[in-house]
């Protein structure tokens, strides 16, 4: 019997400390130990990308990482994407642009797109397709998934511009 290890992993901002078997996969830690079932298991062979989570901000396939490897690191799952009860612009984009049909690939798609937009807030269509190339949609709804990401990029852009102009106004009124 393998020696168990204590891991401390920050999941969606919350520190979790648990004893695990080294062979426990990160996806099983997330789903079975923490009960966060938004992260799905699809192919279980590192092909389909539905188990994608962010490890220190980078998308990885949680079926191909051991939970012990995440010890001391932070992960974000689909449950940690909405903030303060507000859907993230990507989630809104998937709703508005019909970016999901069966919805099975959606959590992974959103997390890959999340990391893409963090790195590149104004991606071209080709860059979006490249960014989600590790995520398969068996409904083949890629067209609307791309539109959903474009919606989110535009939305984030608009929000940050509004934020900036509000700041400008504050500066003006402070100056006045």
């Amino acid at each position: 019997m393998a020696i168990k290890k204590i891991v401390r992993i920050k999941v969606n901002g919350r520190e979790q400390e648990t004893e695990v078997e080294p062979r426990l996969l990160l996806v099983h830690f997330i789903r079975d130990v923490l009960g966060l079932t938004g992260t799905h298991v699809g192919c279980d062979t590192s092909n389909c990308g539905v188990c994608t989570v962010l490890l220190d901000g980078h998308p990885v396939k949680s079926c191909t990482v051991f939970a012990v490897q995440a010890d001391g690191h932070g992960i974000r799952t689909i449950e940690g994407v909405a903030q303060d009860g507000q859907l993230h612009p990507l989630q809104e984009g998937f709703r508005e642009e019909h970016g999901l049909q069966c919805g099975f690939c959606t959590p992974g798609m959103i997390l890959s797109a999340y990391a893409l937009l963090e790195k590149n807030p104004h991606p071209s269509e080709e860059q979006i397709r490249w960014g989600i190339s590790g995520n398969l949609c068996r409904c083949t709804g890629y067209q609307n998934i791309v539109k959903a990401v474009q919606y989110a990029a535009a939305r984030i852009d608009r929000e940050s511009q509004e934020h900036d102009s509000n700041k400008d106004q504050t500066l003006v009124s402070n100056a006045g």
Binding site: G49, L55, H58, P59, V60, K61, T64, W130, G134
Partner: peptide, 9 residues
């Protein structure tokens, strides 16, 4: 090589 998620690791 593989896909973006795999290339991150």
């Amino acid at each position: 090589i593989a896909d973006p998620q795999v290339r991150n690791l």
